[in-house]
């Protein structure tokens, strides 16, 4: 199975990755190969197989509802690119 240029560009937008033209070409080939592998997997008969939510055959341990975290804002904000009034500043986002 092949993947189109448009598909790659759309996926790149969704993943917030900027691609140069030559990268798109390379990805067209690489992703096409991965999709071929998926095609092979699709050929297997899975009619009687339960979908797998997790490869480990175990269940989630639950945590008691008690506060265990302390305020470490100062430490976290020291490594942030920009902060003000205790807020993290990011490029303006309004839809």
């Amino acid at each position: 199975m092949s993947i189109s240029r448009e598909d790659i560009e759309k996926v790149a937008v969704l993943a917030r990755i900027r691609l140069e033209d030559d990268q798109v070409e390379a990805l067209e080939k690489d992703l096409g190969n991965i999709l071929n592998l998926v095609d092979q997997l699709q050929a297997a008969d899975t009619a009687d197989v339960e979908p797998l939510a997790h490869p480990l055959d175990a269940v989630q341990r639950l945590r008691p509802d008690q506060v265990t975290e302390i305020d470490q804002r100062e430490a976290f904000q020291k490594i942030a690119p920009a902060t003000e009034d205790g807020l993290y500043l990011v490029p303006r986002v309004i839809e």
Partner: peptide, 13 residues
């Protein structure tokens, strides 16, 4: 997200 007056940026809490 707070969009007012952070030098053209958004503030995140």
């Amino acid at each position: 997200s707070l969009h007012e007056d952070y030098h053209g940026m958004s503030g995140i809490d």
